[in-house]
Design a protein around this nucleic acid. Sequence first.
RNA 1: GGGGGAAUGUCCCGAGCGGCAAAGGGGGCGGACUGUAAAUCCGCUGGCUACGCCUUCGCAGGUUCGAGUCCUGCUUCCCCCA
Length: 413
Amino acid sequence: MTSQFSPKSDFLRTLMDRGYIHQCSDFEGLDQKARSGMLTAYVGYDCTAPSLHIGNLISGMMLHWFQQTGHRPITLMGGGTTRVGDPSGKDETRKLLTVEQIEGNKNSIKGVFGKLLNYGPDGNGAIMVDNAEWLTKLNYIDMLRDIGRHFSINRMLTMDSVKLRLEREQELSFIEFNYMILQSYDFVELARNYNCSLQMGGSDQWGNIVNGVDLGRRMGTHQLYALTTPLLTTASGAKMGKTASGAVWLNADMFSPYDYWQFWRNTEDADVSRFLKLFTLMPLDEIARLSALAGSEINDAKKILATEATALLHGRAAAEEAAETARKTFEEGIAAETLPSFNLPIGTGLLAANVAVGFASSNSNARQLVESGAVRINDVVITDTRRILTAEDFRDGAIKLSMGKKKHVLIKA
RNA sequence: GGGGGAAUGUCCCGAGCGGCAAAGGGGGCGGACUGUAAAUCCGCUGGCUACGCCUUCGCAGGUUCGAGUCCUGCUUCCCCCA
């Protein structure tokens, strides 16, 4: 158990103190190695979507601290493995993405790492590689002889990712079955070419990672290590990262800094301390002070969490702006100029307006919401479904339209 | 190759004697209570030019006043035997 081990290396101590560690293949060994010089570690990222989401942010933060404590991080883009598809934790086969989609996603994902890591030529400058570089060049027969012979089908069948599918009598295609072999090989490849000795990832990656450690031993690399983070859940046990509009994406064009700030602002009380440690760079003693706040005072801690987490990802200026927009909107009740705005002509029906700004999915949906008293024009509840936006509704050239307590937009003519 | 099952509201799971816009969950959204929290309670959760109309139960036909429900063919998936 992690709690019985007290690490001496800066790296592991930092990770443990901040709550990043779930499992490690060999704590003592890794700790010792981290004290004896610069290590190289990597995390692999799927290219299944055009942006990473907050679930991926934890491993990215681990790489950040890894670098901060003097080591060299590698971000591995799964340009090759995404063509195969990871069956871990999935109920059914995902549709295969085209190579073009994968390349597009890869390029769109890359940007976020520049916020967390320093790339560059200096001693421990981060490195970015794409496993398509070597995986697409593998020759089938050679691969079977060099790599495949080290894998036991008997053991592969006991891996969770495989076992689950078999037990549930769900299809597991041959291509997916091969995924763990490729990911394992990645580790060996990075060990050989970059002297990489540690792979980190989410707890669902444990099986894939230890397979790589194993393959390394069989193929004669130096000792490799596995380190995983806990699954990100709220204190109530719900999986994190999903909201009404989908996942909490890290790319600003898919999830705005303001929404991102709001996401963290709405954290459950019981999660504040944990999230401050995981998703901000604040010193632990400062976090301890904030965590001690009780009752409604903990809202101050939530604002700091939101601002710091947003600043880390989107920059200080965007974070301050989001905080200010929120303050005006929620604490002063005035329409902040920086709220999301839409252009709609005077005379637009209230229902149509709600659909246009994304509050409702259809006129019917909008009608129901209006009737239930959820919709406000300039902070006045409107229940008339035939209401039309008029010139008199404009205050300083804009109408503040609200859905529920939290969603507000400005409408301009 | 032979035999037996399955496919339901496009978020998911899942009931469904021939009268069904289709039970029940989960999730989501909204309301109340609060602190932009949690828990709890209530409402909504196919669409529309809306006391009515239109479109939905794998696909295509058929029987019937009427089909998610019965019949035929097809597709996909699963299980057993070979």
